[in-house]
């Protein structure tokens, strides 16, 4: 197995000093090159789960292994794209992409590599712009290039297109699918959009909330490109909706 997550638990102390369980007995594994979406209502612990896989947050118990190595710290074998682009505003686009590889490569090689990945996200023309000079969708593409330039075996994406408008999002879906096809990365993609998860992934892991558990794990066998198989997608959508419905009701009843 490429990625193995075994009985992961995560507890936080609430501000009232009460222990709350955010993730409960999360176990799943991923094959190399698989595109997995994790779908769940907001607050179910998706970001926490991804953060543990990235090595940014320690788990309370349970383990994460990538290619047999136990994950404790962040590492360049795992690239992360956050919901917000998180580009460094004091660096230009290309300097941002060079950031993770600056130390291990000569200036020339680093530049070439960064340019290659900027080309992949179709932003070569904007290499010398500053982040505030380009749109949100472009910034997120730079963030993707910056994660890919380290050549990680695992790409972690936390609702990367959540803050973008529908049109931009659709275009980025197509680009991401191409990147995935060309680079053969294993991708863990977090979303709360059923459509997005069905459109992109090989597998959808549906999470429930309070505590965060895995409800079901659905394989998506629709051939790509999937735009041509609208009916199948819609059928799956309603199937997943059934699982999520009770969870969303749970959140709503809690909020009112």
């Amino acid at each position: 197995m490429f990625l193995t997550i075994d009985k992961l638990n995560k507890q936080f102390y609430t501000p009232e000093k009460q222990l709350s369980t955010v993730l409960k007995d999360i176990s799943f594994s991923a094959d190399e090159g698989e595109f997995i979406s994790i779908l769940g209502p907001s607050g179910c612990g998706k970001s926490t789960l991804l953060s543990i896989i990235a090595g940014l947050t320690p788990s309370t118990s349970g383990t994460v292994e990538v290619q047999g190595n136990r994950i404790i710290h962040p590492g360049k074998d795992r690239g992360m794209v956050f919901q917000e682009p998180a580009l460094f505003p004091w660096l230009t686009v290309i300097e941002n992409v060079i950031f993770p590889i600056k130390k291990e490569h000569s200036k020339k090689t680093a530049n070439e590599l960064a340019n290659n990945y900027l080309k992949m996200v179709q932003l070569s023309k904007y290499a010398h712009h500053y982040p505030h000079e380009i749109s949100g969708g472009m910034q997120q593409r730079v963030a993707i290039a910056r994660a890919l330039v380290m050549n990680p075996s695992l790409l972690l994406m936390d609702e990367p297109f959540g803050a973008l408008d529908e049109q931009t999002r659709s275009r980025l879906h197509v680009q991401l699918e191409h990147i995935w096809r060309d680079t053969k990365k294993t991708i863990i993609f977090i979303t709360h959009s059923i459509t997005e998860s069905i459109k992109l992934s090989d597998r959808v892991i549906v999470m429930g909330t309070q505590p965060g558990v895995i409800l079901t794990d659905i394989k998506i066998d629709i051939p790509r490109p999937r735009e041509k198989h609208k009916e199948q997608m819609i059928k799956l959508e309603s199937q997943i909706m059934v699982h999520l419905k009770s969870e969303i009701d749970k959140v709503i009843s809690e909020e009112t």
Partner: peptide
Amino acid sequence: LFIRAARTMGSN
């Protein structure tokens, strides 16, 4: 977020 992002890129 800047610090988290930098740490995923091997900086510490």
